[in-house]
């Protein structure tokens, strides 16, 4: 598999110190570490939401650190997807309108097709019947799955997720992580920041960060339901070794 994201010597003040790593196509990678270690900063800098002080970020073969704000916005629109801890959606629109919003903004001509795709995605993530509900009429887990649908609208090669289960209870978190596994199975790479070792154990690889540097890496391989408990134990042991 080719690398979809390559990061070399990435620097941002005292928060990120010469970080380097890569994510392959259709790979699901988690970044873990204590609060304040720079996980989210790393995510926002490799996704072009924030401007790094130095280093190189290659996304799909294109260097993105030198792009202007508008160019980076364009890249975020079609070249990647985003899922946040706070399930930010426009409160004045219903779920399906929120889901198609970025896609329609990118290409107004195919509005109809986008709505069809949104319905398919919603059905896939078991929220098909909520299409016309307002944002404040659904649960946190349902809302986060709608956010995943939104990130998948333009079939980006990679999705960045910042604590996607952080504001959810355990059941909702399981539903959301299942949704991520589902889209990963379709070939989309995922780079996710998480505090939750159970969520991280579903990923193929875990990167551990401390004080702005990558301290270690655990490779678990593709997730299978059968090895779930074993992966969880392995993850916890490794994290303890890393000083978690």
């Amino acid at each position: 598999m080719e690398e979809i994201l390559q990061v070399k010597n990435l620097r941002k003040g005292e928060i990120l110190r010469n970080i380097g790593f890569a994510v392959r196509e259709a790979e699901m990678v988690a970044i873990m570490g204590p609060s304040g270690c720079g996980k989210s900063t790393l995510l926002y800098n490799v996704s072009g939401m924030d401007q790094a002080d130095g280093g190189e970020v290659m996304l799909g073969g294109h260097e993105i650190t030198g792009l202007s704000e508008e160019e980076r916005a364009k890249l975020r629109l079609s070249g990647m997807g985003f899922v946040f801890q706070q399930m930010n959606m426009l409160s004045h629109l219903n779920l399906i309108d929120n889901i198609v919003l970025p896609a329609v903004h990118a290409d107004k001509k195919h509005q109809k097709e986008y709505y069809s795709r949104a319905k398919e995605l919603m059905a896939l993530f078991h929220i098909g019947e909520l299409a016309l509900r307002r944002v404040n009429e659904v649960s946190g887990g349902q809302l986060q799955r709608a956010c995943i649908c939104r990130s998948m609208m333009l079939e980006p090669p990679i999705i960045f997720a910042d604590e996607p289960t952080g504001a959810l209870n355990q059941t909702a978190a399981s539903e959301v992580i299942d949704a991520f596994l589902e889209i990963n199975r379709t070939g989309t790479a995922i780079l996710m920041v998480t505090h939750d070792s159970r969520v991280a154990s579903r990923c193929e690889r875990i990167l551990y960060m401390l004080d702005g540097e990558l301290q270690g890496e655990l490779t678990l391989g593709k997730y299978t339901k059968e090895r779930e408990k074993e992966r969880e134990k392995q993850t916890v042991r490794w994290l303890e070794d890393m000083g978690w």
Partner: peptide, 16 residues
């Protein structure tokens, strides 16, 4: 502000 942040994050342009 959070909604604007989200719009920016998902790549909606300034003009958008």
């Amino acid at each position: 502000k959070p909604e604007i942040g989200m719009l920016k994050a998902v790549g909606i342009s300034k003009k958008g």
